[in-house]
Write a protein that binds this DNA or RNA. Structure first.
Lengths: 161, 161
DNA sequence: TATTGTTATACTCTATAACTATA
DNA sequence: TATAGTTATAGAGTATAACAATA
């Protein structure tokens, strides 16, 4: 059948494994009633209470209108709340509710469970090394430890070769 | 500002870096006139000439109708061709054209360039170790060295926590 | 006039279901 | 009847542009 002219490369493996990880996390957030994008937003708001929608949009690399929809969902579900800033009434200050904080805690548990699923077959030393290398790669490329952009310009998600 | 209660985990880093890798590859395929999904299909056809659309759909984990659209594009661009099987006239046998084969070669170059971009900051030994660990993870999870599913069930792409 | 947030709209990706032709 | 492929349609996710309130 297929003849492996060359083994897959790091870039391919990263996007393949990254898609798998994203997928498995999506399954878990779905059980908790939110999407991965909403979970990411909730986490940022938790870390930066009072952030406004514009700054959040910049941080996410998303359009302002996208943020409106995300916050609408989180607010409707009772996980986050808007409040007009008293210093500049154009701003909506975003905060996590009590219920949202409890959800964040469950999301952390889900992420820990996922961690086991993904790297369970590796010996401790290998897992530690992998973690270190990925962290260095992420830092080298200036990726924000808080943000997972999803992706930016080119629409597509899958990849190859 | 943000307080790093816990460092990002392997799952998060994988999906973050995977999205970055997918993104950078998408930029490159765009310059070559195709999408990453089309590039992946072209590669599979190149490895398995004569494969039909049903089997391709299974391999991709995509709907049959999705394959129709992908092959339509590749055929319109002159990179792949359909031909009715003479043994079972329901089947379309898929093949890469000359032009498609030349494109595959350019895609390989693009992937190699990407490899440098991604892992250039790592020492050779670290890069080799990272490669080995990623390959083992991929194998452990039964991922096909030929296929990058993009993702399967849950629609979302971004992720977090 | 510039900025924050909102709404209206449209475009891309993808799936489901109905349909055609072959078997 | 079952399977390969196609078409029609619909639903996510996301962006752009026009708009309202505030500065």
């Amino acid at each position: 059948m297929s003849f492996p002219e060359r083994p897959a490369r790091i870039g391919f493996l990263l996007s393949q494994l990254g898609a798998m990880a994203a997928d498995s996390f999506a399954t878990k957030t779905k059980e908790l009633g939110i999407t991965p994008a909403e979970a990411g937003v909730l986490r940022i708001i938790g870390h930066q209470p009072g952030i406004n929608q514009s700054d959040l949009a910049v941080k996410l690399g998303a359009a302002k209108s996208r943020v409106v929809a995300l916050i609408d969902s989180l607010e409707a579900a009772g996980f986050a709340a808007r409040s007009r800033s008293m210093r500049d009434r154009r701003n909506q200050e975003l905060r996590v509710t009590e219920s949202g904080r409890s959800l964040l805690s469950r999301l952390r548990s889900a992420a820990e469970a996922q961690e086991v699923e993904i790297a369970d077959g590796l010996a401790d030393a290998d897992r530690a090394k992998l973690y270190e290398l990925l962290l260095r790669l992420s830092a080298m490329h200036g990726l924000d430890a808080d943000v997972h952009p999803g992706y930016t310009e080119p629409s597509a998600a899958s990849t190859a070769e």
